[in-house]
Amino acid sequence: MDTHLTDDVVGPLPGDYKSDVKPIWCPGCGDYSVLAGITRAMATMGLERKDTVVVSGIGCSSRIPAYTSVYGYHTVHGRSLAVASGVKLARPELNVLIFGGDGDGFSIGGNHFLHACRRNVDMTYIVMDNQVYGMTKGQASPTTEADWCESKLTPEGPGVNPIQPVALALACGANFVARGFSNNPNEVARLIVEGVRHPGFSVIHILSPCVTFRPEQRNWKSTVHPYGREPTDDPNEAMRAVLEDDGFGLGIFLAGNRRPFQPESAATRSIAQIEEGFAV
């Protein structure tokens, strides 16, 4: 893989981290701006493509690995965090970023999310939350409001309260927790850079409108607001503040100081020896 990304004038550019695959998201989708934020963050950090892996599950936002020029692994539904943990534990020198949506992360992959926060492997999880399953044409997701009635599957609304991703991440032990909004890709880039540089498991919750199945989310631009507090390293303080938040506060809630999980023992068997065990 070519690792020469240095521009003669300004160094690596965001475009260096885009692949030749053209996104097929709906025009107006927030994920376009998140992709812009991701590539700007990568260029700012000057990440080596050969040392960077993006891992995803299934869904619109999980298409990110195809659209970036670093190593990518488009895994199975809800399992991106398990695969990414394996990558990071086996190759701790790599930069590991995980991308997915609210359904992939908090429903199908909900159990993995809890334990990824608890385990605190040094990697960064970016969740693009549009409060709907967009790829399957608009069903309620774990973050959909209880009274959202626009899906034929739940004509009277899902009837249960939505998960609060930021509060859940804090409760389960994530070491860095932030929220951004897709309309501001430069701020998204900043949060990603801060998350990648912070040791341990970082969760970045990005509000990313689905303009096709949740067109009312175009109004989020007038709903979001700065979180308004300096980040704390105390999870209890962060949780108390988040419980007063309306779900639209943007910023860094927690930059904690838990030690990342990274086994120190070296491998005891080679890949060839492991493969021998599977020989038929």
Partner: peptide, 9 residues
């Protein structure tokens, strides 16, 4: 602005 795009624009 990406968000001002529409597939039928």
């Amino acid at each position: 602005a990406f968000e001002n795009a529409h597939y039928l624009m």
